[in-house]
Design a protein around this nucleic acid. Sequence first.
DNA 1: TTTATATATAGCAATTTAGCTATATGAATA
DNA 2: TATTCATATAGCTAAATTGCTATATATAAA
Lengths: 104, 104
Amino acid sequence: MNISIDIEKALKALASDKRLLVLSLLKDPVGNFPPQVDGDLIEDGVCSNWLTEKMGVAQPTATRHLKVLADAGLIIPTRKKGWVFYKRDEAHITAIKKLFSEEV
Amino acid sequence: MNISIDIEKALKALASDKRLLVLSLLKDPVGNFPPQVDGDLIEDGVCSNWLTEKMGVAQPTATRHLKVLADAGLIIPTRKKGWVFYKRDEAHITAIKKLFSEEV
DNA sequence: TTTATATATAGCAATTTAGCTATATGAATA
DNA sequence: TATTCATATAGCTAAATTGCTATATATAAA
């Protein structure tokens, strides 16, 4: 198995309005964000600049929020042409939901 | 409806090893705790003293952890003969799990 | 009513988190 | 290779969280 789950880490990552917003927006990239040229909204994810803008924080603060989500296995970063795109890690999120249902 | 759910508040309450431990232990009060005289383990819940001991923190610290869980609708306190007993609020927990599944 | 005891609150210190600005890194292009 | 521009890191402050001890409150029993 290559998915290892730390439920406490996931919950700490989720316990933030900014990060919950990011996960929510990433559920519908096409509906929530403008078209991109260098990365496919679905395949690669959403450019960190758009996410930073939606969060309403400075760039380094946004970077850290995104790192927390990525470290908890909730989103997947993809580097492409100098930008970083983020999409939900649905497999891991599903596993977390299952564990949450069972263990809490 | 008398159940109102704040998913962010619930996640913040859950994002703690001590509080996750309490919720976990309360799943099986009879298996995890000794018999009580003044409050029924199932009907009323577990005496805060036992929970304090399991958490391994001082009494006021435990009180605050339990308050965080109660404020988030995860546990229900019952006062009886000078003690406070806590049990899981299964209805609310179920609602939180549903919302978690849908919104995250 | 007084006393004893469980729980809650006050208040403090240490740690963690979240925000910022300034700057370093690193990859794409000229 | 040099430049440019997006992202990452460093380093700081403010706020929130967690732990403690001391003390207040409140309930049960004497």
